[in-house]
């Protein structure tokens, strides 16, 4: 067997998303690319999910079905995926908002997801607006026990925070990065200020410089149709895509001296250190290469 294109053991042993279950025609075989390899997969309500390297149909890859997606791994994955307890709350609407290809590395896309300072400039008059550009101090913690980056008390003035909001408000966010290529954000719900909407991005690394971004929504919204909620998130993502595709280098540089962080980038600094600590080499430019 030829050597697999990805040799990073950390990344090989991760669970990676392949497709939204709701968009997978039951009982049919599909193919996609993961870590530069052609992967076949299939799903049915009775048999669940299966995945294999094309050309090696006999050898089944491990699979999971979580949060509405089919996941697989090319190595030896952990028993389970990170937890998102809100997903199981009965009154939430869970859906795949979109799966969009982006010509960028997965870690660059995660940093963009964690970033608030770009709202007024990239998501103008929706998630932010000039002159309300300040990113006030927030807290970042790397939990050793849960092995994830956590940013809390992230506040930003937003003209229109979600499909269901009509006026501007200061919105509070919490970000989690429980997986090198996955992140979850919690933001004050327009419908129920006591609870939070959940938006997660699961990045499928096609290769070191291409991803398919799967966007999960788990929201409290009774007023809007699925289509409206999806359109809102898709238009947001459409604004990020050209920025991400114009970042250079496309792989995330982990040397602290390769770019210039400011206090607003605290979460990104923690994320880069966390990746360095894991010894990740795929999708990044390791420090001191």
């Amino acid at each position: 067997m030829p050597t697999p294109p990805c040799t990073d053991p950390v990344v090989l042993n991760l669970w990676h998303p392949l497709s939204a279950v709701a968009e997978t025609a039951a009982g049919q075989d599909h193919t996609t690319t993961l870590l530069e390899e052609q992967i076949g997969y299939a799903w049915s309500p009775d048999a669940g999910a299966r995945a294999w390297r094309t050309g090696a149909t006999q050898h089944q890859l491990p699979t999971l079905v979580r949060y509405g997606y089919i996941w697989t791994s090319l190595g030896t994955p952990p028993k389970d995926l990170f937890s998102i307890p809100e997903y199981d709350e009965p009154d939430r609407r869970n859906m795949n908002a979109s799966t969009i290809g982006v010509h960028v590395s997965a870690p660059r896309a995660i940093e963009n997801f964690l970033d608030m300072a770009h709202f007024p400039f990239v998501h103008t008059d929706v998630l932010g607006s000039e002159p309300h550009t300040e990113v006030v101090e927030y807290d970042v913690d790397v939990s050793a026990e849960r092995d994830e980056v956590l940013a809390t008390r992230c506040r930003m003035f937003q003209p229109k925070a979600s499909a269901s909001s009509s006026a501007g408000a200061e919105v509070e966010y919490v970000y989690r990065v429980p997986h090198p290529y996955c992140s979850i954000l919690y933001k004050t719900s327009g419908d129920d200020p006591g609870r939070k909407d959940v938006i997660a991005v699961f990045l499928q690394p096609v290769d070191q410089e291409h991803v398919r971004a799967h966007l999960l929504l788990s929201v409290l919204d009774d007023a809007h149709e699925d289509k409206e909620i999806r359109n809102f998130q898709q238009s947001i993502f459409g604004q990020d895509k050209p920025i991400l595709e114009n970042q250079f280098p496309k792989r995330l540089p982990l040397d602290p001296r390769s770019e210039t962080p400011i206090r607003a980038d605290k979460s990104a600094v923690a994320y880069r250190r966390w990746l360095s600590g894991k010894g990740i080499t795929y999708g990044v430019i390791p420090a001191g290469r």
Binding site: I243, Q247, F248, P249, E259, T260
Partner: peptide, 13 residues
Amino acid sequence: ENRCLHRGVRLSI
């Protein structure tokens, strides 16, 4: 250099 020092975005955009 066609690159913002902050996050590497092209300055040609």
